[in-house]
């Protein structure tokens, strides 16, 4: 059958979740409509349930051991590979960021470029953050004493609501660079660049389960992650401010490390510093006697 207009009909992508390296639909069978900033239909995204969150935590936990044991150099190479793959799909991301955030195309391009460079920045930290955050401690006594950072484990990340790609990368990369595994809840209204990013992650030699990505209602999923006893830390960056106290209280049940939300969304283009890495590592100090 020929198309009377002479134009080819595009094949649309199904946007799904990203759990344990696979792309499942929500186990709940639910989806929700994602629109651009003008209200035009873009896609039906999967509406993740608490069970999807639970599955994502299981996948993340399984990934912690191999990922945290991987040499720092290897983790850095993989993060750099993410930047390479992202660069290769730059045009696609510019379009998606433009649709999601309603910015100009030049601004969308700038944001995508910054997101790529952000992966490069964190790739470089993989074998350096321990040199910045660790120390050799001159204790008084015949002991060799040193402190090194180790990943905390499974980190739940509530991604920023406004910055759909640069903000997302800026919160995910510092969590995984040290060897943590992440369960990420994407921006509720602008989840599509996040799903596409998960396609990049799936083809960048990143082991399955290191990043798991859920789309849906932050307020619905976040409490389950905040109270989950097998989650070690939670980044509340993208949490609705009215929900923050409740989430932080829930997180205290197993003494999660918590990164609090800010009053207004951060300026993601700024130098990220080390705080987002240091929040999600434990410092281990080792003492050893010195003697013949």
């Amino acid at each position: 059958m020929s198309d009377p207009s002479g134009e080819r009909l595009a094949v649309r992508k199904t946007y799904k979740l990203f759990i344990g390296g696979a792309f499942p639909r929500s186990e709940s069978g639910r989806s929700y409509v994602v629109t651009d900033t003008h209200g035009n239909f873009l896609a039906n995204a999967a509406l993740a349930s608490r069970k999807d969150a639970r599955d994502a935590v299981v996948a993340a936990r399984a990934a912690v051991k191999p990922w945290s044991k991987a040499p720092a150099y290897n983790r850095g190479q993989i993060l750099y590979r993410v930047a390479e793959m992202l660069e290769g799909r730059r045009a696609q991301f510019v379009t998606e960021v433009l649709d999601a955030e309603g910015v100009s195309s030049s601004e969308a391009a700038r944001l995508v470029d910054a997101a790529i460079d952000r992966w490069v920045w964190y790739a470089g930290w993989a074998d350096k953050y321990a040199q910045a955050l660790g120390s050799s401690n001159p204790v008084a006594g015949p002991y060799f004493d040193f402190s090194t950072p180790e990943p905390t484990g499974v980190v739940a990340v509530l991604a920023p609501q406004s910055s759909s790609l640069l903000g997302l990368v800026s919160v995910v990369a510092p969590v995984i660079v040290s060897g943590n595994a992440a369960v990420v809840v994407a921006s509720e209204q602008q989840p599509l660049p996040a799903i596409t990013l998960s396609e990049v992650l799936a083809t960048s030699d990143l082991p399955a389960g290191v990043v798991n990505l859920l789309t849906g209602l932050t307020a619905e999923i976040a409490p389950w992650l905040a109270s989950h006893l097998d989650v070690n830390a939670i980044d509340l960056t993208g949490a609705p401010l009215e929900l923050w106290p409740e989430l932080e209280r829930a997180a205290s049940d197993n003494v999660k490390r918590v990164l609090r939300p800010t009053e207004t969304e951060a300026e993601w283009s700024a130098d990220p510093g080390l705080r987002r890495i240091s929040t999600f590592v434990e410092t281990k100090t080792v003492w050893h006697p010195i003697g013949v």
Binding site: Y73, G76, Q77, Y80, W121, A123, G124, W125, A126, D127, K128
Partner: peptide, 10 residues
Amino acid sequence: FFYYAGWADK
């Protein structure tokens, strides 16, 4: 080269 590449902006 990978290692020092990472230092250039840090």
